[in-house]
Design a binder for these strands. Structure first.
Lengths: 158, 158
DNA sequence: ACACACCCTCAAGCCCACTTGAAGGTCAAG
DNA sequence: CTTGACCTTCAAGTGGGCTTGAGGGTGTGT
């Protein structure tokens, strides 16, 4: 009987069998056809799809976003502008993070040089150094790019 | 009585009161002194510390790592060589992170360019574009950069 | 005196992306 | 016919970093 077993697919895609079942369970992957005894049977298309999922994930997309992409993709006719937009936003986020990290690295490196030259380096400095750097950093939350943590309550003064 | 209430600290630091209590509970923040009725009382130093935590977090450090930094930092009198050493290691970590992110950005940007250039950017094409790319992409796992997912079992052929 | 915005603790829940475990069915080789 | 490597399902656990809820105390303005 034709078709790969889940373990073969797992091996070829570099995922685990439970992960593949999990993907099916959350609707990321279409339900595989079954053999008469209930075994899932796969074709090469699934491996390609899993590799797509892996790479999309590696590119920073959440499973939710990937599902959205695949849904649009399966619809076929829908334009890809949303997907493209999503990718652009990810790129922006990544670049901003690189900038933040670079600034931090410079600050840290400068501080270390100061310390290295210092005869009597105090540890207390560390907090102030890092805490006292320039503008407030935006928190980069790779998996949830929407900033849903805005709390600006007006407290009654006591 | 002197001292900020937890809500004031929350507002000024941009965190929430429960989060601050949580940080205390996991030993990230020192236990605040209490008023006679049990209210936590804070000084400005705590706000600076929380901002340090926020920034370190934004830079990709886990609370565990931040705790380590703060612990050494608080040790105060102990020779600073350890802190310095830690700082060096963090600098290395930051630089490695920058390199990883840069590679990641290049890959993503390349995908987007490919995609942008496409006259008929069908989502199907997109999938194939990403799925069909050359070398395997490195998975970018922001919080756990260690690649612990190598499974290469040898399956018996059936 | 009362409302109301704070504060406290402790426990449980949530989210994501899985992983692990238990209990059992299937299939090919020896 | 047994062994053992596979497959099945469903449930529960993991980990990081919180958030939410219940139940109850505090402090101030009117």
């Amino acid at each position: 009987m034709a078709g790969l077993l889940i373990g073969d697919v797992a091996e070829r895609s570099g995922l685990t069998a439970p992960t593949i079942r999990y993907y099916e369970s959350i609707g990321l992957l279409a339900a595989a056809p079954r053999s008469s005894t209930g075994y899932r049977r796969y074709g090469d298309a699934t491996i390609a799809e899993l590799q797509f999922i892996k790479k999309a994930q590696a590119l920073g997309f959440s499973l939710e976003e990937i599902r959205e992409i695949l849904k649009l993709s399966r619809a076929g006719t829908t334009p890809c502008s949303r997907v493209l937009d999503l990718a652009h936003r990810h790129l922006d986020a990544v670049e901003e993070r690189i900038r933040q990290l670079s600034r931090f690295r410079d600050t840290l490196a400068a501080e270390i040089r100061k310390w290295d030259g210092d005869r009597e380096p105090t540890c207390r400095g560390l907090c102030q150094i890092i805490a006292g750097t320039d503008e407030p950093l935006e928190v980069f939350r790779p998996r949830e790019l929407g900033a849903k943590n805005e709390r600006r309550s007006h407290r009654k003064a006591r």
